[in-house]
Amino acid sequence: MEDTINIADQWTDKVNQRDINGVLDVSDPHIELIGPRGIAEGHDILRQWITESGIKLETQGHYAKGNEVISVQRATWENQNGHVTIYTFMEIKNGKVHRLGRYDTLDDALGQCQLNEEDKIN
């Protein structure tokens, strides 16, 4: 479980640094991306998202078990005031982020995986 959290944190750090190659290195080539605009797959769409989103993520905590993790994150975007709390789900396989989903509520994030409230990491 510690490796899963470390990979999730590494992915987030690389996004914050806009280190596209670094994010791609820890992402499966066929990564599934689930977000408010639907579902997409692959490095090309991930590269585009990193380039265009202007997002910064500050992780506040985790829910984790096995190869799944939800990061509770404070998200801010360039050219926007304020922040929102989002819940980023990651499924890790073979040391890479295989599936990633962004959710506005913890219930929505928990509904997409095998994690529950008891999996909160303090």
Rank of each mutant, 00 (worst) to 15 (best):
N67C: 03
G42S: 03
F89H: 00
Q48C: 04
G101F: 01
V26N: 03
D25Q: 08
Y103L: 02
D104F: 10
R99C: 12
I5S: 00
H30L: 15
D44V: 13
R102Q: 15
E52G: 11
D3P: 11
Q114E: 15
V26K: 02
H98N: 13
T59S: 11
Q17V: 00
N67W: 08
D28A: 08
I92N: 01
N16Q: 09
D108H: 14
S27V: 12
K120A: 10
V84L: 12
R99Y: 04
R102A: 14
S71E: 07
Q60D: 13
L100T: 01
N79M: 15
L115Q: 03
R102N: 13
G95W: 08
Q73L: 00
V69E: 02
Q114L: 00
H62E: 12
N81Q: 13
D13P: 00
I39N: 14
E41R: 06
E118W: 04
N79D: 15
V72Q: 01
L46P: 00
E118C: 05
W11N: 10
G82D: 09
R47F: 02
V97W: 05
H83R: 05
I121L: 10
K120E: 15
Q114V: 05
N81G: 11
A8T: 08
L33A: 01
Q48W: 14
A75G: 04
D107M: 07
E58W: 07
W11M: 08
L106T: 04
V72G: 02
G54H: 01
E68Y: 04
N81T: 12
G66D: 05
R18I: 14
G101W: 11
R99F: 00
I70F: 03
R18M: 15
E68T: 12
N94Q: 14
M90P: 01
Q10T: 09
L115V: 12
I5G: 02
Y87H: 10
L100N: 12
H43M: 00
R74N: 02
L100I: 13
D25I: 02
D104R: 07
S53I: 07
M90Y: 07
L57G: 11
Q48N: 09
N79H: 05
Y87C: 03
G61P: 02
D108L: 14
Q73E: 09
W77H: 06
E41K: 13
R102W: 06
V69Y: 08
L110F: 15
A64E: 03
A64H: 01
